[in-house]
């Protein structure tokens, strides 16, 4: 992103955010797999698990592609 300043690309920070959130949401989804919250609709679809997995894949890809030091 920056030619003058060599700043770490914003996409790397996006990747870190998505990766960390993905892990947190995925793990909390797994923890609630057998005991989903009763007041949440469609809890049987286990949205936190596959949404968390999606965030992990996207976040990991961004971290890898835009990691500091990569030309």
């Amino acid at each position: 992103m920056s030619e003058k300043h060599h700043i770490i690309p914003v996409w790397f920070f996006v990747g870190v955010l998505l990766l960390v959130y993905g892990v947190m949401i995925f793990v909390s989804g797994l923890a609630a797999w057998n005991n989903p919250p009763p007041d949440v609709q469609l809890a049987e679809l286990h949205a936190p698990v596959w949404w968390g997995a999606l965030l992990i894949i996207l976040g990991g890809t961004y971290c890898l592609l835009f990691r500091p030091g990569k030309a």
Binding site: Y21, M24, I25, A47, P48, G52
Partner: peptide, 12 residues
């Protein structure tokens, strides 16, 4: 949000 999102997703 509260209708569909449980712990974790709600925080997001």
């Amino acid at each position: 949000l509260a209708r569909y999102c449980g712990p974790g997703l709600l925080g997001l």
